[in-house]
Computed example of a mutant assay.
Amino acid sequence: MTGRRRASRSGVFALCLLLVSLVACGGQPAADSTKADVQRLLDSRSAAVLHHDETAYTRTGARTAYENLSAVPFASWSYRLTALHRTGATATADAELSYKVRGYDTAPVTVGRALTLGLTADGKWYVDSDKPAKKSGQQLWDQGRVRVVKGAHSLVMGVGQSADSLADYRALADHAVPAVSGAWGTDWSRHVVVLVPGTLDGMAGLLGSPAASYRGIAAVTTGEAGGSGSAPADRIIVNPEAYAMLGAVGKQVVLTHETTHVATRAHTTSATPLWLSEGYADWIGYRGTGRTPVQAAPELHSAVQDGDLPTALPTDKDFGFSSDPAKLAQAYEGGWMACRMIEDRWGVARLGTFYRAVGTHKKRPGAVEDALKSVLGVTPGEFTGEWREYLEGQLG
């Protein structure tokens, strides 16, 4: 009896150890299995996007998202699951979405996404929602169904916009690209992607910032600045409300200005001051329009007329969107006049060389000074003095 009891107790103890081992070891594979299942679901979703297979996409979740993005010409689309939190038959997931627009993006755009998932009665996961991750901007298709028009040098995508409206943007962008190449050169992609949301709030959503930051700003350009020479995804994002207030020339100037930022991106670094990058973009924007300095620089003209001649070139802080509107306008106008002066005295080619020379520096200190000396043969003091004289002569 004693031996049997000992054997029985040993057996129970061993069985308990086995059960504990199974539970402890079985938990991780179960979690890994769920992750693998969800990743396969996201892979199926990606394949459906790329193959324009609405039926296959619908099997992975709601159809609305497919309808919103189906017109966009994607060259690639994939998710990488980074985190998964399951609660019974539901789960939340974090993922990185990478995609390329065919013919326009040289490398994938990567954005954070937050997904909610559900489990069907037969044990299969489906996507219930796919939204921007916290602190990530929206994609255009998050705002509604995307309409696409393609030009000779441009791809214009809009939400809440008519085909005619997008065709107008296409015409402006197709004019801007060769205009920029004519001044800057052809060492860039020579095409642009223009995003036109339905409202100012839509613009802010794409940029992941408050709408107040862009009120009155007609358009901005996003993308990677600096050194690689292969910014994967410059996007010109339009504020349709401010843009609608512009005249025909103003609309063209804005699109050409933003296209210049796309062209110069690889040569615009942390060493490049905003008076140069914004002034150069305005210089190309106004080039060929026939606008005189008094017409194109009204705020600076008023200041000079009032005897308030600037003592120094605009600082980066002067270009803050929250600045006084008149001071902000003067900053842009001052940068434009500086670039216009370089063209007048040293020529178009030397202006482009100067821009590139500044951008070769890794840091701001010394960048402009070295480029002024090596390219234009002047000191910063001499350049500023000539600029002030130029303002007086052109705007006085």
Rank of each mutant, 00 (worst) to 15 (best):
A231L: 12
L276A: 09
A281Q: 04
G290V: 03
Y280C: 08
Y280A: 14
Y280D: 13
A266D: 13
A296T: 01
Y243L: 15
V294C: 12
A297C: 11
S230M: 14
S270F: 00
G290E: 08
V294G: 09
G250N: 07
Y286L: 08
W275D: 14
A244E: 15
R265K: 14
T289N: 15
E258V: 02
P240F: 09
A242N: 02
G250K: 06
P293I: 02
G288A: 08
R265E: 06
L276M: 13
S277H: 06
Q295E: 15
S277N: 10
N239G: 05
H257Y: 11
G285M: 05
T289Q: 05
L274C: 05
V253P: 00
G290P: 11
V262K: 06
W275Y: 05
E241S: 12
P293Q: 06
P232L: 06
A271Y: 10
L276Q: 12
N239R: 11
G250C: 07
R235M: 12
V249M: 10
N239M: 05
P240G: 14
E258T: 01
T260N: 15
V249A: 11
A266N: 11
E278I: 00
A271S: 15
L255M: 15
N239V: 10
A281E: 07
W275V: 06
A231R: 11
A281V: 02
R265V: 07
G247R: 13
T272N: 11
H261I: 09
A263T: 03
I237E: 10
M245V: 07
A263L: 10
V238I: 12
A266F: 06
T292L: 04
V294E: 12
A242Y: 01
A271H: 08
L274W: 03
V262I: 08
V294A: 10
V253Y: 02
E258D: 00
I237M: 09
Y286D: 02
I237V: 15
R265I: 05
L246E: 09
G250W: 01
A271I: 12
A242F: 00
W275P: 13
E258Y: 00
Y286T: 03
R235H: 09
Y280M: 11
T259F: 00
R265C: 08
R235K: 14
H267S: 07
G288D: 09
I284L: 08
I236Q: 01
R265M: 14
S277F: 01
P293F: 00
T289R: 07
I236V: 12
E258F: 00
V238Y: 08
W283D: 13
G250R: 04
A266S: 15
V249R: 08
E278D: 04
N239P: 03
T268Y: 06
P240I: 05
E241V: 12
E241W: 04
R291K: 14
A296H: 02
V253N: 04
I284S: 04
D282Y: 00
A266K: 11
Q295C: 02
H261L: 15
H267F: 08
S230P: 04
V294L: 11
S277L: 05
S270G: 13
T264W: 15
I237K: 01
L255C: 08
S270I: 06
T256M: 05
Y243Q: 14
Y243C: 10
K251G: 13
N239W: 03
W275Q: 03
R235D: 15
A233E: 12
V253G: 07
V249P: 15
T269G: 14
L246I: 06
V254L: 04
Q252N: 11
G288M: 11
D282F: 00
A263I: 04
I236N: 01
K251A: 10
G250E: 06
G247V: 04
